[in-house]
């Protein structure tokens, strides 16, 4: 489902003496449907960068990143937009929303974008918010004022509203208490069982052991420093 071939990434900082930072090079791996792969490696190794490259958020200099039939590296913006709408979900650590939009709408939004009628989208959103223990009296409020853990759960509810065939999870269980962490892990297991290909970053080792089939150490892709 997700297939990376010889992927490399450098950042060129034009305004800071044209410094070139090589982050990762020659990354190749693939993730099958129903498989969950963890990216590991020390902070700064390039886990999130790699994930953002797969999502099309960071530009990839060379190689190919195939998701289904689409190569993210060479795809047109509108193809990536369609891919994100239909195929590829992404749960980041931070929630970014339009001010003033109620929580229920934030969660239902991915479904509404797919053309699901408002009523059905709202029902799905309510189910997820209930499952993730977001109190009902908060649903009509904008999540911008919520606590960190609540925002994270709203973000997860949003990411799982549509049954994406491929999912990217960046620290989905960080800043959650044990009970909520367990619920999120169950959501991921359910997604896996229905055949989603999942790539995740989990600092929580127990979580990794429970849901991931393999681990990929990103620090192995660090460019070799010239002697």
């Amino acid at each position: 489902m997700i297939d990376l071939k010889d992927v490399s990434k450098t950042f060129t900082l034009h305004n800071q003496g044209s410094a070139v930072i090589e982050v990762i090079s020659n990354v190749s791996f693939s993730v099958a449907a129903g498989e969950c792969v963890a990216l590991t490696g020390a902070s700064g190794a390039g886990k999130s960068t790699l994930m953002r490259m797969i999502y099309g958020n960071y530009l990839t200099q060379s190689g190919a990143i195939r998701i289904g039939d689409l190569d993210v590296v060479t795809a047109q913006p509108r193809d990536i937009i369609a891919l994100r709408r239909e195929v590829l979900g992404y749960v980041s650590q931070f929630l970014r929303v339009v001010p003033r939009v109620p929580t229920l709408e934030v969660v239902a939004d991915p479904l509404r974008a797919l053309g699901v009628p408002a009523e059905d989208a709202h029902r799905r959103a309510m189910d997820l918010l209930t499952l993730l223990n977001i109190p009902e009296h908060l649903w009509t409020l904008s999540p911008t004022t919520f606590s960190g853990g609540e925002q994270q759960r709203v973000n997860i509810a949003r990411g799982f509203a549509h049954s994406y065939p491929a999912l990217l999870l960046d620290e989905p269980t960080a800043s959650l208490d044990a009970a909520n962490r367990d619920i999120v892990l169950q959501l991921i297991e359910t997604a896996k069982a229905r055949g989603a290909a999942i790539i995740g970053i989990f600092h929580d080792e127990a979580a990794r052991a429970r849901i991931c089939d393999r681990e990929i150490d990103v620090s192995l892709f660090a460019p070799k420093v010239a002697a």
């Binding site: 950042f11 060129t12 900082l13 034009h14 305004n15 953002r52 099309g56 958020n57 960071y58 530009l59 913006p77 990536i80 937009i81």
Partner: peptide
């Protein structure tokens, strides 16, 4: 390019 890509990973000196 894609809005979030240009804003999060700008390539040209001026965009940066």
């Amino acid at each position: 390019g894609l809005t979030d890509q240009v804003l999060d990973d700008p390539q040209h000196a001026y965009s940066q």
